[in-house]
């Protein structure tokens, strides 16, 4: 790298329009800036090599060079399936950003709406329990004892939603046990 120690400190620039009020950007904030648009990352994803992007920005980069999919920062191999979406606190939707932007015509997986049945339970969004009412006793069983499965929609450990899911799962477990006891002793 060329080091120009004796060169005069020279930088001139003229920016159009005035966002002069934002001059004082904190260093902390730059940590969360997208490496492509240089703005705060929205629908953030992080690559395996640790670089942060807006998903729309990264998606457009991958579309621009389909034959050469590399990280825009470090040029490590990168692909749609090898980025991790980031969900901050207050981001209630927790929708995978990768499902929103890509105009992939076929095979797009849409999440079911959660307002069917059991309105009284007040499930949080993103809480996907599938148990059939038709096969009530067994359905309860399967849905109850399946909690070990790594579901794609499972909330990340440590979040409020994760706690809520754990709590609800315990309730269902107890309901199921009581139901079995009732079947045996009734």
């Amino acid at each position: 790298m060329a080091e120009t120690s004796e060169a005069q400190a020279s930088a001139s620039a003229s920016a159009p329009g005035g966002d002069a009020g934002q001059e004082e950007e904190k260093h902390d904030e730059r940590m969360l800036e997208c490496n492509i648009c240089l703005d705060t990352a929205r629908d953030a994803v992080v690559s395996m090599c640790g670089h942060l992007f807006c998903w729309p920005c990264l998606h457009q980069w991958l579309e621009t060079r389909p034959s050469r999919q590399v990280c825009p920062v470090c040029k490590a191999a990168i692909s749609r399936d090898k980025v991790i979406p980031l969900y901050g606190r207050g981001n209630t939707k927790q929708e995978d950003p990768r499902n929103k932007v890509p105009p992939r015509p076929a095979g797009q997986r849409t999440e079911p709406e959660n307002n069917s049945g059991f309105p009284g339970f007040g499930f949080g969004e993103g809480f996907h329990m599938s148990f059939g009412i038709g096969a009530f006793p067994f359905g309860i069983f399967t849905s109850t004892f399946n909690f070990g499965d790594p579901r794609p929609s499972a909330a990340p450990r440590g979040t409020a939603q994760y706690e809520e899911e754990q709590f609800l799962s315990k309730i269902f477990l107890w309901v199921a046990i009581l139901f079995v006891l009732w079947l045996i002793f009734a």
Partner: peptide, 8 residues
């Protein structure tokens, strides 16, 4: 102090 300038 690097000698680089950028102007619109």
């Amino acid at each position: 102090g690097a000698s680089i300038k950028l102007e619109l």
